[in-house]
Design a protein around this nucleic acid. Structure first.
Lengths: 246, 246
DNA sequence: TGCTTTTAAATTGTCAGACATTTAAATGTA
DNA sequence: TACATTTAAATGTCTGACAATTTAAAAGCA
């Protein structure tokens, strides 16, 4: 069923991989119970702690869930959308924060992906998603809003835009791109003036989607991208040359 | 530095989360060495196996790497693109295989994302990526090719298309969408006739990118999507009603 | 019989201590 | 100096045990 060659490298990793392969290949199906830790230890001829380390690796990827007690054990987990979103966001955030991705590159990717959603969003937008977008726009126009809240609202607006496309796979793929950008966006301290401009773009997008005008929405997104880029560049420039100041 | 409230649930998960938070918040920076397992056990007032389970969880997400020997230990890992690709693909594949995503939905998401890449790809395509695309097209036209090889070549072609955009973040995001579709695409047994049509679409796309004509490439992608959808629907229909056969 | 309570068993979660293995630095030697 | 040897620190693994939890079956009772 699942065997283990006599490699010398990291038994727990090998066991985890063997079980993972059994899951992705369909040998173990959703909600099926794995053998108990003692049985697995016996099967792979290792100790229980080693098996446990392997199981924890799989649990970290949401491939299995464990339940204590009699007739408990480890079960193959149905990967849910929220779990997948979470992993997607964690991975994207780390990738962006650790690899010196330029602001320009991240921006370009994000807006390219969002533009991919607009034709579908224009066709399928519901009163519900439109209301969410309007509500976030209204919030963004409040004068006393903190920078953090403004950014959070910005993310919520763009998520609503993506969700308007009515395709869960697309929403999942975009979650990482939109959420992971937030730390980068937070670096840009929005002045009242730039907030006003952004609210303007958002309004144009919402209006266009409301009228099912994909092209106008796409153009607004493109202009918003250009504007965001200039904001980002200004911040970078001000940071790299903050010489003369009293 | 990193403390642990007196919850009763799964110490190893709590410890993993505490360390993960320290990493994503920047308290622990890339290549920094974590305290030894014994020190961590002491710090969190748990046993070493419990700490080890927590570390294995983090290792499964490529957040840390471990090294044996003196002055070894656990180090904060710089998440590389290949690792991120791998996790992206694993998660996407499981999500698609476990959640009864319709072929239509997956297809729609995939081609929407690919179309998002074409404007950039048309601007930035290099002789190298064009050559890769041509080579895969040539392979796909070989008569003796197995279905598996044809699908693999199809994936390679589309990856080259995505990579042409010259944006690593985009390539990363798309990796999941393209690769995870492969099992679904494999379900469609391509006849010689449909292979010919697909090669035609691919040729049109490559030609258009070569001439930096984004619009034509996008149109070809849209037609390829429509064609793929009809293929998928025919297969589904033939499967759900395979009554009359001698 | 039918319901409630108790008991027992199975399983994961955790601990303690030990040994094996690996690796790099420190030490010794030609 | 250059090379071989020793040593110490750290992870990888094992054994055995106990605690906590959960369910199923057994026991008790009306």
């Amino acid at each position: 069923m699942k065997i283990d060659p006599d490699n010398k490298a990291d038994l727990s990793a090998q066991i985890a991989e063997a079980i993972r392969d059994a899951i992705v290949s369909g040998q173990l199906i959703v909600d099926e119970r794995l053998p108990s830790e003692a049985e697995l230890a016996d099967h792979f001829a290792v100790s229980r702690p080693t098996v446990r380390e392997a199981l924890k690796r799989l649990a970290a990827q949401s491939l299995i869930r464990t339940q204590r007690g009699a007739f408990g054990g480890a079960f193959v987990n149905r990967l849910s959308y929220p779990e997948a979103y979470g992993q997607q966001i964690t991975t994207s955030t780390l990738l962006l924060s650790m690899n010196a991705i330029s602001f320009d590159t991240a921006c370009e990717a994000r807006y390219a992906l969002e533009r991919a959603c607009t034709p579908l969003a224009a066709r399928r937008r519901t009163p519900d998603t439109l209301a969410t977008m309007r509500a976030e726009i209204h919030r963004q126009a409040q004068p006393g809003l903190t920078d953090e809240s403004f950014c959070a609202s910005d993310v919520a607006f763009h998520r609503a835009l993506v969700d308007s496309a009515g395709n869960p796979v697309l929403s999942y793929q975009l979650a990482g791109a939109v959420e992971a950008m937030q730390p980068l966006m937070n670096m840009i301290t929005f002045t009242a003036r730039s907030r006003e401009a952004i609210v303007g773009f958002h309004t144009r997008i919402a209006d266009a989607l409301s009228m099912q005008d994909a092209e106008t929405a796409q153009n607004a997104l493109t202009e918003l991208e250009a504007y965001t880029l200039t904001l980002g560049r200004d911040v970078m420039a001000a940071r790299s040359a903050p010489r003369a100041r009293p």
